[in-house]
Amino acid sequence: MRDRRAAELSGRDGERRAAWWLWLKGWKILDRRVRTAAGEVDLIVRRGNLVAFVEVKTRATQADLDFAIDERRLSRVARAAELLMPRYARPGDDIRVDVILIAPRALPRHIENAWIG
């Protein structure tokens, strides 16, 4: 139980760091931790006519980040994004699924357009 709680707190901290990082890069944070029947999207952000549905992964080391995301997780985010598009995207907007990887003592790693499905 304690490990689960620690992981949850670490994940929330990573999501805050990722949102801050994106904001500094000119993105507007539209929403956080949005749940759908298909799964959860950690962050929904906009910059100009681009809306990104962002999966955030936080790990204890940079090396652990190499195994933090896989096709199954990305497909879940993509399915959730499809359900959420009408709520967040406007006609003519571009849509993509991004990943941000967070580890201590390292800048966030932003993988743009991570899902090509």
Rank of each mutant, 00 (worst) to 15 (best):
Ala6Cys: 06
Ala6Val: 15
Ala7Thr: 01
Leu9Pro: 07
Leu9Ser: 11
Gly11Pro: 10
Gly11Asp: 09
Asp13Glu: 15
Gly14Lys: 09
Gly14Ser: 05
Glu15Phe: 10
Arg16Cys: 06
Ala18Asp: 11
Ala19Lys: 01
Trp23Phe: 02
Trp23Thr: 13
Trp23Asp: 10
Trp27Cys: 05
Ile29Ala: 02
Ile29Tyr: 02
Ile29His: 02
Leu30Pro: 10
Asp31Tyr: 05
Arg32His: 09
Arg33Thr: 14
Arg33Cys: 10
Val34Asp: 13
Arg35Trp: 08
Ala37Trp: 00
Glu40Gly: 00
Glu40Pro: 11
Ile44Tyr: 09
Ile44Asp: 07
Arg46Trp: 13
Arg46Ala: 11
Arg47Gly: 12
Leu50Gln: 12
Leu50Lys: 06
Leu50Ala: 12
Val51His: 05
Phe53Met: 07
Phe53Asn: 06
Val54Asn: 12
Val56Arg: 08
Thr58His: 14
Ala60Glu: 13
Thr61Tyr: 11
Asp64Lys: 02
Phe67Arg: 10
Phe67Glu: 09
Phe67Tyr: 04
Ala68Val: 01
Ala68His: 01
Ile69Gly: 01
Leu74Gln: 01
Ser75Asn: 08
Val77Ser: 05
Val77Lys: 00
Ala78Trp: 12
Ala78Lys: 01
Arg79Leu: 15
Ala80Tyr: 03
Ala80Met: 11
Ala81Pro: 09
Glu82Lys: 11
Leu84Cys: 08
Met85Gly: 14
Tyr88Ala: 12
Tyr88Asp: 11
Ala89His: 09
Ala89Cys: 07
Ala89Gly: 06
Arg90Pro: 04
Pro91Val: 02
Gly92Glu: 06
Asp94Pro: 00
Ile95Pro: 01
Ile95Tyr: 05
Asp98His: 02
Asp98Arg: 03
Leu101His: 05
Ala103Met: 07
Pro104Gln: 04
Arg105Leu: 13
Arg109Ser: 06
Arg109Ala: 09
Ile111Asp: 15
Ile111Thr: 10
Ile111Lys: 07
Asn113Gln: 12
Asn113Ala: 12
Ala114Tyr: 02
Ile116Gly: 00
Ile116Arg: 05
Gly117Pro: 09
